[in-house]
Amino acid sequence: MKDLIKAFSHNKAALGGLLFLVVIAIAAVAAPLIYPHSPWQMVGAPFQPPLSGPHLFGTDMLGRDIAAGILYGARVSFLIGIVSTAVALSIGITVGALAGYLGGLVDDALMRVTEFFQTIPSLIFAIVIVAIMSPSILSIVIAIAIVSWPPVARLVRAEFMSLRHREFVEASRVLGVPGWRIMAFDILPNAMAPVIVTASLMVATAILMESGLSFLGLGDPNLISWGYQIGAARTMIRTAWWMSFFPGVAIIITVLCLNLVGEGLNDALNPRIVRRRKA
């Protein structure tokens, strides 16, 4: 673990990304302190450009503060990104572990299902799921999780296949430890490194996908989000560019930082690259 932190902190870009993410997260949590009113409330004249008066990023067509929307939107983006990744991870790990550990017919069947889900164009699939369940935070999380678990399953399966015949696994088996315990406590911890890397990238992808859904009008109507802000501002791009510009920048920065962190983790966890770095 110490080595990991050391290797990670060696990577300046990744460290910077992490710091930035922490700052955004704190701002998101503190949003009600910075902007005590609801982000939906009209607080000024409509269409105020950035830096005019008290509104850092200007106001929208009803005089709502864009910056307030971005801070409250960060909560939605993080929430959806993290929860949907967690759900996708649990599906993917379960499927991958069963397929990799049991092998044979189970493996075949599970991998066909995985391939099947990988073939469907993911955004179109997510759109349909959300539209059919009617847009809400729940349906968005489900949709994103359903389209993003297959790569996890494949990854975990590969790890399990290579680990299942190792001595420490065989030893547990001889001792009569039940299969699920072996999977959960012997193999899984050893297979987690690549999963963690993938997870950080999945959060980024989930945030991008949520913004795409909200942009198309499929966001949770009770919550403000970055994609919603851009979608609602789209017809006003000529009159008020700032309405769509700043939420977009917020998405880019967040996703960029997550990607940097993911790469940092990858480098830190992947011994081959670490070796090369040292060389």
């Binding site: 991008l208 789209r234 977009g248 998405i251 880019i252």
Partner: peptide, 22 residues
């Protein structure tokens, strides 16, 4: 590459319309 990898398609589309068309 890192930047474009993190940019939502629809947003860059809007910005491209704003800049190159409008």
């Amino acid at each position: 590459a890192l930047l474009f990898y993190a940019t939502p398609l629809f947003w860059i589309g809007l910005m491209a319309i704003l800049l190159f068309s409008l």
